[in-house]
Design a protein around this nucleic acid. Structure first.
Length: 579
RNA sequence: CGGGGUGUAGCUCAGUUUGGCUAGAGCGCCUGGUUUGGGACCAGGAGGCCGUAGGUUCGAAUCCUAUCACCCCGACCA
């Protein structure tokens, strides 16, 4: 490509609404422009990178016997109502009403559609397993789009769905996809961490997340210090803190007047107490069941862990339910005297570190102190579970190993889904034993745009992007420094030679000063730069420089082609460690 | 949805407090010239209903009302 003909609108100034490096650089290097909040137009360079990522994904998926299909972005709302996921997604789901009054969902994902395909086309175990995928736009009406393409309302996702006749087959494909993902992210040049994850709303039994560690990531990942275990914060288990045993007589419970002190922080300040003495009490609902969850005041309840402990989906109780249960305003709930009115009491291990604590009195504007777990509310019983239901924090251990926290960008996730969708949508097959069974499913997602953005997050410097060669918009940029006819002719010759070899070359043929071309080349992040100047031309040399390195190598003009081909091979090979 | 902020040239922003010449700067763009290895210089030039709609006033970018868009923080979203 000739630079003079290309639309590569680089800018010097950083747009004011871009905060993280990838967002700033994608705008500055002319990869994309914003159309509206959370929606972007990809310009030629940005689209070339996305195309290259998609091709890598496609190649590796095909290699693993997945078959590419394309499903509609517009899906009938009825389909979502059958699985109830319209409610799970809630306002995040974008939809429109058509002229006939039908509601149409702009697909945030495609489990329902692909399962209905399976329902129609899969009849026998002989057709299984099968793995179908697509690469397409997805839509989510995010409550707050941000960080450029990291959280946008419209994005490109590779989503794959596998169907199986038994668990073992699912495990095999899950493992295959896991390995496929490793190859994909390695080929894209990313440094990633694989963490155990919760499957959350997706339903199902097992999940791993592929995460690129970096400062601007929105996910928190937790690793043991020896690296032997990693999970995201929703999942990360913690060792129980040493429990205190009750070994003396504590004073009886005493009511204290705490007018309008509702949050842990307010009460601590008001009573000059530590949050470690507080028993935080939260009321959850699961269907018609009421669940009381207790955690020490300085910790946070982890809703995912709580959901797993309960075994059913849960939600925070509304104000009316809490008032009805406790007889008090929200903010004064406590476990004492409440256990007979609820269906389940879930106590976090941390509560057992409290000898005599403070908690709500179930009476507006009152708390109680000298509350002894085991004395003033039961720790054992039919509906009482002591479990790990809090978020891991700095200082926690798991299996005795210190936990380390990092931020990261989620670029992919694999799930074992089970039969949640197939059962509801009638995706059944006839097994060997002539019984009809729902397909067992897995699903596997990759955020294409996030791969591009996270690559920039981890590979950039003050001058611009430093693309891994596999996803760089061009492999080589030629920057003639000077504009004599001999010089242009020499550059042109190299350009033609490399093009003939199938190398992706950007030829900076603009009538600009050297400095301008160098600055743009650095900003764009093309991995290999070939420069010819008057001096080097006189010596019959060209200069070759890698974007990521400082050194410049002089190479005789006649050998440039060979040298470049070798370099490209070498750089690509570096990224194929998992292939 | 709650709290805060911003809308002025293609981009980044002054000007608004205290209403008053023809609305400004830098970058970018066009013309001519000098330059040409790390974002050159000189001269000339194009480009704005001051987000939108009302209102107050002799007079509004500036004051008032409404509305829209965008950004930041937070409610717990996979």
């Amino acid at each position: 490509m000739r630079y003079s003909k290309a639309l590569i609108p680089t800018v010097k100034e950083v747009p004011s609404d871009a905060e993280i490096p990838s967002h700033q650089l994608m705008l500055r290097a002319g990869l994309m422009r914003k159309l509206a909040s959370g929606t972007y137009t990809y310009l030629p360079l940005g689209w070339r990178t996305l195309t290259k990522i998609m091709n890598i994904v496609r190649q590796e998926m095909n290699k693993s016997w997945a078959q590419e299909i394309l499903m509609p972005a517009v899906q009938p709302m009825e389909l979502w109502e059958t699985t109830g996921r319209n409610i799970d997604y809630g306002p995040t789901m974008a939809y429109f009403t058509d002229r006939h009054g039908r509601k149409n969902v702009l697909a945030p994902t495609a489990e329902e559609v692909v399962t209905s395909i399976a329902a129609g086309e899969i009849n026998s175990y002989k057709q299984l397993p099968i793995n179908l995928y697509q690469i397409s736009f997805k839509f989510r009406d995010e409550f707050r789009p941000r960080f450029g393409v990291l959280r946008s309302r419209e994005f490109i996702m590779k989503d794959a769905y596998s169907f199986h006749s038994d668990e073992q087959s699912l495990d095999e494909t899950y493992k295959t996809m896991y390995e496929t993902y490793k190859r994909i992210f390695s080929r894209c040049g990313l440094k990633y961490v694989i963490v155990e994850a919760e499957s959350g709303e997706m339903g199902g039994s097992g999940s791993h997340q592929f995460t690129v560690p970096c400062e601007s990531g929105e996910d928190v990942i937790v690793q043991t210090e020896d690296g032997s275990y990693a999970a995201n914060i929703e999942k990360a288990p913690v060792d129980a803190l040493p429990a205190k045993t009750v070994n003396k007589d504590y004073k009886p419970i005493e009511e204290i007047h705490t007018p309008n002190q509702k949050t842990i922080e307010e009460i601590c300040t008001f009573l000059k107490a530590s949050a470690k003495e507080m028993i935080k009490t939260l009321v959850y609902k699961s269907g018609n069941d009421l669940i009381l969850a207790l955690v020490r005041g300085d910790f946070e309840i982890n809703p995912e862990k709580l959901r797993c402990t309960v075994g059913k989906s849960i939600e925070l109780a509304d104000e009316a339910t809490i008032k009805n249960l406790t007889g008090a305003q929200v903010g004064f709930a406590g476990p004492v005297g409440l256990t007979s009115k609820i269906n389940k009491l879930i106590i976090d291990h941390s509560v057992l570190t409290i000898e005599a604590g403070i908690t709500g009195a179930n009476k507006t504007d009152y708390h109680i102190k000298n509350v002894v777990p085991g004395r003033d509310f039961p720790l054992t019983g039919n509906n009482i579970i002591i479990a790990d239901i809090r978020n891991a924090v700095e200082g926690d251990t798991y299996k005795g190993k210190k936990l380390i926290f990092k931020r990261g960008i989620e670029v992919g996730q694999v799930f074992k889904l089970g039969t949640k969708y197939s059962a509801k949508l009638g995706a059944k097959f006839l097994d060997k034993d002539s019984t009809e069974k729902p397909c067992i499913m897995g699903c596997y997602g990759i955020g294409i745009n996030r791969i591009a953005a996270s690559a920039i997050e981890i590979f950039h410097d003050n001058d611009g992007i430093i693309w891994p060669i596999s996803i760089a918009p061009y492999e080589v940029i030629i920057t003639p420094a000077g504009n004599s006819e001999e010089l242009s002719a020499a550059a042109e010759k190299i350009y033609n030679e490399l093009m003939a070899c199938g190398v992706e070359v950007l030829f900076d043929d603009r009538d600009a000063r050297g400095g301008v071309k160098f600055k743009d080349a650095d900003l764009l992040g093309i991995p290999i730069r070939i420069t010819i100047g008057a001096k080097s031309l006189a010596e019959n040399n060209a200069e070759i420089k890698l974007r990521r390195e400082k050194e410049i190598t002089k190479v005789p003009l006649a050998q440039v082609k060979e040298k470049i081909l070798q370099l490209i091979e070498k750089l690509k090979a570096e990224q194929n460690v998992d292939a």
